[in-house]
Amino acid sequence: MSAEPFVALTAVAAPIHRPNVDTDQIAPVRFLRRPRGEGYGTVLFHDLRFHADGTERADFVLNRPAFREARILVADENFGVGSSREQAVWALVDHGIRCVISAGFGDIFFNNAINHGLLLVREPAATLAAVRQQLDAAPGTTVAIDLESQTWRLGEQPARRFEIEAARKRRLLSGLDEIDMTRQLVREIDAFEAGYRARRHWLFQVT
């Protein structure tokens, strides 16, 4: 899928204090079958954000006035664990979130994020605990991210460098479509497949 390129972003960051935010919490299952085009923004953290009657829970961080425009989440550890549902990523990006900083991510969520221009940054849990404390102390503080130089900074604090794999960085910067890129390799794929079908022929003799 092609995605909106990610180059740089300065935006309000919201703290998510709990660890193990699984994809069931990010995008509850009962919303997963709506067509992609209908939008998933209201799905995000639905059961944490809204009461059963649909009214907002005033205490949830994204409902607080200072964090309503947040486009960056500062989490704890193990963000996006659990189900393979890509809708968790759709919910985040449709709500406007473009970056999640966490001490760790679910592997499948991590792979899904790149297909929708969602930047995931890994930082140690202790660093993030301190950052979340500062976001609590001064709600509405912005985080500035520059992907080219691989840096982010909280408010006016010194910039911190983060690591990102070269292939992920390239795709985020360009928003390039992966299927288009792969289809340019069709001859190489066909040649590989011919060999595979020959040496694993029993897989293809089923009726």
Partner: peptide, 12 residues
């Protein structure tokens, strides 16, 4: 895998 990866597998 996620839906975009599924699409990639379907296509390639």
């Amino acid at each position: 895998i996620g839906a975009s990866e599924v699409c990639h597998v379907l296509a390639t």
